[in-house]
């Protein structure tokens, strides 16, 4: 599916003293099969924006088109849209409520209108996808560990078979292992099932490692919308809005500055390692030649 956001604006509590403009003239197109990272300082409007994507919040200005149809039109099946655009909230584990993990994961598919058996089928599939095996099905969601709870909650969204999966800081408050597990899971979903993903995050490393396009928000506006290497070149501007480039970008920039022949726009550790190895090989070759020269002279 293609989601097109057209000059979208949102104001909280319009007409009162608490009025605050959260989003301002946002234009964004999310195509089929994309993996987008959305970064921005706290309060930049990320969470507000993602809640527009499945129609939970109605914009005060602008429109949203899904496959060419305006979702604010009268009679648009908004609940169907919520199944097509799966939104995983921040700390989704706080929405678990049922007595068993399986029935909790079934909640979404059942709301979608599937029968009990079909819903269970979908739920089992989603639980397998997030790495929770059969032994978890009958356990209470409240006795799971933090990471397992979060995966169960994500399974609850996945079970609805969304075409676009939007995750609001899915790795917040998790240890490195849990974080990697979740991000790998997203990558797998994207590659194997072709789900489009929007990943909202604070961590530049996470975003740089997984996404193919970055949207930077600041004070409710889109600051950049580009591929990671071109976004993270703007280190100074990013720092000005309370963000940063991935640490490896800083290293590479420093190396390039001091005269090493490396590409400063590299954003992932793997790519950086490759570059440094290449430089190291040439350095080694040079050293060898010098050493050979010295050897021959003697």
């Amino acid at each position: 599916m293609e989601l097109q956001i057209d000059h979208l604006g949102y104001t909280y509590h319009p007409g009162t003293t608490f009025e605050r403009k959260a989003l301002d003239d946002i234009c964004l197109t999310i195509g089929s099969g994309e993996f987008i990272g959305m970064i921005g300082h706290t309060g930049s409007g990320k969470s507000t924006l993602v809640q527009h994507m499945n129609g939970l919040i109605k914009a005060t200005e602008g429109r949203i088109f899904v496959d060419g149809t305006n979702i604010y039109e009268d009679g648009y099946p908004i609940r169907e849209l919520r199944c097509r655009v799966g939104l995983v909230f921040q700390y989704p584990e706080y929405q678990l409520f049922d007595t068993t993990v399986l029935s909790d994961v079934c909640f979404g598919p059942k709301n979608k209108g599937l029968s009990g058996e079909e819903a269970k089928e979908k739920a089992r599939e989603a639980m397998r996808a997030v790495g929770l095996d059969e032994s978890y099905e009958m356990r209470s969601p409240f006795e799971l560990s933090g990471g397992q709870k979060r995966r169960a909650a994500i399974a609850g969204i996945l079970a609805m078979d969304p075409e676009l999966l939007v995750l609001d800081e899915p790795t917040a408050g998790m240890d490195p292992e849990g974080r990697d597990e979740i991000l790998h899971l997203l990558k797998k979903l994207h590659e194997e099932r072709g789900i489009s993903i929007v990943l909202v995050s604070h961590s530049m490393e996470d975003v740089a490692n997984y996404v193919s396009r970055i949207v930077v928000l600041d004070q409710g506006k889109v600051l950049w919308d580009d591929i990671p290497s071109r976004v993270f070149v703007h280190v100074e501007e990013l720092e000005k809005v309370g963000l940063a480039a991935p640490q490896v970008s800083y290293v590479m920039a420093k190396l390039a500055q001091t005269g090493w022949d490396v590409d400063p726009s590299v954003t992932t550790i793997d790519a950086a390692a490759e570059q440094i190895c290449k430089v190291w090989v040439t350095v080694q070759d040079n050293l060898k030649q010098v050493a050979d020269g010295v050897w021959k002279r003697n």
């Binding site: 809640q51 499945n54 939970l56 609940r79 919520r82 199944c83 799966g86 939104l87 995983v88 909230f89 989704p92 706080y94 929405q95 909640f107 979404g108 709301n111 979608k112 609850g156 969204i157 609805m160």
Partner: peptide
Amino acid sequence: NRIMSAQEARGAD
């Protein structure tokens, strides 16, 4: 409100 939105995102009515 947050939980309500989260459940509505899962199709709750």
